[in-house]
């Protein structure tokens, strides 16, 4: 766990709640905001962030459950619970509003989605750069990044296989 004294459970809940607003269209906006608030300023090790995200892709249910791990790294068990609440509260409000008033806002939502697609793409690129910067990547390792990007963007390979493949490659590199 990192410096838990600087981030409390309420901070965790606040950031996760805010990040939920950038999940439009399955954009994983949480990643960008978590990176910006905690990884960038050095409150959370990039490797731990990536580790929690990786685990989240291997567990059943919604992939966003990785935020529980982030919450734990930031503020222990209370942080994990706060992260869970930070996802559950705005989502339940949003889901209820959508159930009730979706038709009324359908046009606005559709129009915002067009714009959000590119903005969230930008946020994810920002997160990718922020995550990669402190990793001390050597030239050959860029091939792994490029291969993962191609496999996901053009081949439609599931994230679980990409992360599993990266882990297997790491084990192979260690053995060699």
């Amino acid at each position: 766990m990192n410096d838990a004294t600087t981030v409390g459970a309420l901070d965790v809940m606040g950031v996760i709640m805010l990040s939920t607003l950038f999940s439009l269209g399955g954009g994983n906006g949480q990643i960008a905001l978590i990176q910006d608030y905690w990884v960038g300023p050095g409150l959370l090790e990039p490797a731990l962030f990536a580790w929690a995200y990786a685990i989240g892709n291997f567990v059943p249910g919604p992939k966003v459950s990785f935020v529980t791990g982030i919450g734990y790294y930031m503020a222990g068990i209370p942080g994990a619970i706060a992260a869970l609440l930070g996802i559950v509260i705005p989502t339940s409000v949003g889901a209820s509003i959508a159930s009730h008033w979706y038709l009324k806002f359908q046009r606005v939502i559709n129009h915002m989605t067009l714009s959000a697609t590119f903005v969230i793409a930008g946020m994810m690129t920002t997160a990718a750069y922020g995550l990669a910067r402190p990793m001390e990547i050597v030239w050959g390792e860029y091939a792994i990044i490029v291969a993962a990007a191609i496999a996901f963007a053009w081949k439609g390979l599931d994230a679980m296989y990409i992360i599993g493949g990266s882990a297997a490659l790491g084990a192979l590199i260690w053995l060699i």
Binding site: G25, G27, N28, I31, P46, A47, A50, W51, Y53, A54, L114, T117, F118, I120, A121, G122, M124, T125, A127, A128, L131, A132, M135, I137, E141, I144, I145, V146, A147, A148, A149, I150, A151, F152, A153, W154, A159, I162, I163, G165, S166, A167, L169, G170, A171, I173, W174
Partner: peptide, 30 residues
């Protein structure tokens, strides 16, 4: 160490995944 190496390559994979996700979102927009 084994864990350290695996975590490093998983981190690289996730960087690629984020870039790939960004590209896919932009490509799929109508």
């Amino acid at each position: 160490t084994l864990l350290g190496t695996v975590q490093h390559t998983v981190g690289l994979g996730i960087v690629g995944l984020l870039i790939g996700n960004a590209i896919r979102m932009a490509r799929n927009s109508k």
